[in-house]
Amino acid sequence: MDRVSRDNKEKNRQHYNKLYADYSIRNILIWLKDLDSFLDGACATETSWHALYQDGFKDRLEDKKVMEMGCGDCVNAAMMAGLGAEVYANDIAEASGEIINKLNQAWEFKYPIKFVKGDFLKNNLEAGKFDFVVGKAFLHHLTLPEEKEFLRETARLLKPEGEARFFEPAVNSRILDEIRWMIPVKGRPSKLNRKKFIEWKENDPHPDRSFSSLHFKNVGTAFFKFVKIKPVGTLERFNRLIPRGKHNIRYRRWAFKAEQNIPLLINTYLTRSQLIVYKEPLQ
């Protein structure tokens, strides 16, 4: 692994250990008690859930072995386990393992969640073991050399009929990307505020790399026969212009439905994010 990748990995480890230190599982337990309602609401209004759980993913999980890369706050790992999946949750941050321990102690899952500690590439997991490999906003944390190795390992771990599903940001329009950086959001200053933006960028755990749909298509074809990229959030991205509340929620519900009618070429160019599906691993 090159020095840039090693430095990036350590930056991510420190960042997410700090972020998830003493993380409360209270909300996760509340959501598990009414899992169907939680997923219905999340998939109708939140981009990452709407993307990842498309194509009946929720109903395909029971008794399946699932590896989640970058489990983070472990909400998705808990939901998949709550749906009856045998979940292996990996993260470089030790704090995620502590969350998994709390969840297993507080909730009786059909299969207790197994935490896979540290570097995903060094765990020597059994080949052809998993029905699904999942990443919810994960690949974009990797440098391009790292991403290539992670996808090679993903193909090795999947069963022949297995499937990899990743929700990732999409940058297919340079104009929209430049506008995005100029608009301040919580935790990130505007690029127009040059000094603060540079300070933020120095601490940002995300490497500078391509997030284009074409990139994810090309890198996927090296390891999988089947590659599908679906744009998500082309219209939903404008919800930030609407104050939080019922009108914002109503807009997001409408946007996810309406953007399905946008021609694919335009939708891909303007989209905010994407669902990436890889199948038929090349062994």
Rank of each mutant, 00 (worst) to 15 (best):
G84A: 06
L103Y: 01
Y111N: 13
A106P: 15
Q105C: 13
N90A: 13
L103E: 02
I92Q: 02
G84T: 09
G82S: 10
N101L: 15
Y88V: 04
M79K: 07
P112A: 01
F109P: 08
G97E: 08
I99T: 00
I99Y: 06
E86P: 10
I99F: 02
K102V: 13
Q105P: 01
F109H: 09
E94K: 15
W107H: 10
S96W: 04
E86T: 02
M79H: 01
E108K: 15
F109R: 11
K102N: 13
V87T: 01
M79Y: 03
G84I: 03
M80V: 08
F109N: 06
Y111T: 09
N101F: 14
E94V: 15
I100C: 07
A95F: 13
D91K: 04
N90F: 09
A95C: 12
A93V: 08
E86A: 12
A85R: 03
G82E: 09
S96P: 09
M79S: 09
L103I: 05
G84D: 09
Q105K: 15
D91R: 05
A89F: 09
Q105S: 13
M80H: 04
L83Q: 06
I99E: 00
M79T: 06
K110S: 02
Y111I: 11
A81G: 05
G84Y: 07
L83H: 05
Y88P: 06
G84E: 11
G84F: 06
W107A: 08
V87S: 07
G82D: 01
A81L: 00
I99S: 04
D91M: 00
Y88W: 13
A81M: 03
M79D: 04
A85G: 11
E98R: 15
E108S: 15
A106C: 11
E98H: 12
E108D: 14
G84H: 05
Q105A: 15
I92A: 03
E98L: 14
G97A: 10
A95H: 10
F109L: 08
A93I: 01
N101E: 13
N90V: 06
S96I: 00
E94M: 14
I99V: 02
E108Y: 13
I92K: 05
L103D: 01
N104H: 11
N90I: 07
G82P: 02
Q105T: 14
E94Y: 15
S96L: 11
E86L: 06
D91H: 03
A93H: 01
K110E: 04
E86D: 14
W107F: 15
P112T: 07
K102E: 08
N104L: 12
I99C: 07
E108A: 15
N101W: 14
K102I: 09
I92L: 11
E98W: 14
E98I: 11
A95V: 10
M80P: 02
Q105D: 13
V87F: 00
N104Q: 10
N90H: 10
